[in-house]
């Protein structure tokens, strides 16, 4: 790439290489996305939250598990920006480290679930027949369980903790993605451009991986982003019910749980992690909505 990467290079109608063409397409999507202020707001908040969690050790003012029993349930002050909890731990620092656990859980779930759902859906949709029936009935079985209840049962059966919470949420989260990918594949399968690829003699694996799956990805990303908020809520709910992250490790849901008895007198203690959950969910929802406007093939 000898040419400098600027706007004209990106918007060129006659790209000189594959990379320039691909970046040009991405840049146009980004321009569309940038035009939506709500979605940009969502993106900024989501990025800030993730960065805050990543750099928690640098940003935190106290050790999140350091107790200061003399200073329990303090109101927000210069020393403790968001006050302290029932054991005198700094809420601001716990919130940062809690973000690592909560957002980490969410991201692990997504990394586990999205490829699985995509693979199951594409295979079922592309081959049809008995493969479709078998895979979709399995999907239906998982879809039939209420997410939180199955996750609770699963965690209770093994042992409470972050890993089992992630697996439990993942188990209940993949079926909608499989459904979505299958629906997309069904509409792509009979298009002329897939027929043309079949006529080159390409194998089914090649067609699915290189031609079908990339087209399903757009709506899958949108769906995953919109689902993030509900995964955050499930993760927090498990924490609240004591089935997720175990004390003393800070997690937004369990922070609310342990502080809930102070709700009437020291209301800010449970409220602050609640706000964090709310803001994170909202940010991902706005982001997802914006992504849908630019990525959803049905609206283009």
């Amino acid at each position: 790439m000898s040419a400098s990467i600027d706007r004209t290079w990106l918007l060129s109608e006659a790209p000189a290489s594959r990379a320039q063409a691909a970046w040009g397409r991405r840049y146009r999507l980004w321009c569309d996305f940038r035009a939506n202020p709500l979605a940009m707001g969502g993106l900024v908040i989501a990025v800030v939250l993730v960065l805050a969690a990543l750099f928690a050790p640098l940003l935190a003012t106290y050790d999140p598990s350091a107790q200061e029993l003399a200073n329990r349930l303090a109101t927000p002050s210069a020393a403790h920006w968001l006050g302290t909890d029932e054991l005198g731990r700094d809420v601001y620092s716990r919130l940062l480290f809690g973000g690592r656990v909560t957002l980490g859980m969410v991201i692990s779930v997504v990394v586990l679930v999205a490829p699985l759902g995509l693979a199951v859906g594409c295979v079922a949709g592309y081959f049809g027949g008995w493969a479709d029936t078998l895979l979709m009935r399995v999907t239906d079985v998982f879809l039939a369980f209420p997410r939180l209840i199955l996750a609770l049962a699963f965690v209770a059966a093994i042992h409470p903790g972050v890993t089992s919470a992630v697996i439990a949420i993942a188990l209940t989260a993949w079926p909608p993605y499989a459904r979505l990918a299958r629906a997309e594949t069904l509409s792509i399968r009979n298009t002329d451009f897939i027929a043309a690829v079949r006529l080159t003699g390409a194998s089914s694996v090649r067609i699915i991986l290189r031609h079908v799956a990339p087209l399903c990805l757009g709506s899958l990303i949108v769906r995953v982003t919109l689902d993030m908020s509900s995964i955050i809520l499930t993760a927090a709910s498990l924490g609240f019910l004591g089935m997720g992250a175990q004390p003393p490790s800070p997690e937004w849901g369990s922070m609310i749980a342990t502080a809930r008895r102070f709700f009437l007198d020291q209301w800010w203690v449970p409220l602050i992690p609640g706000i964090a959950i709310f803001v994170a969910s909202l940010a991902f929802n706005l982001l997802g909505d914006g992504l849908r406007d630019v990525l959803d093939p049905k609206q283009r």
């Binding site: 790209p15 594959r18 063409a21 691909a22 397409r25 298009t191 002329d192 451009f193 027929a195 043309a196 690829v197 006529l199 080159t200 003699g201 390409a202 090649r206 290189r210 031609h211 990339p214 087209l215 093939p297």
Partner: peptide, 28 residues
Amino acid sequence: QMVFQDPYGSLHPRQTVDRALSEPLLVH
């Protein structure tokens, strides 16, 4: 080989001309 009726539907919307033309070569 076959050429289809609808030139809007017979090319993969996310693939460049270069990619569409190299695909048969890669397969064979």
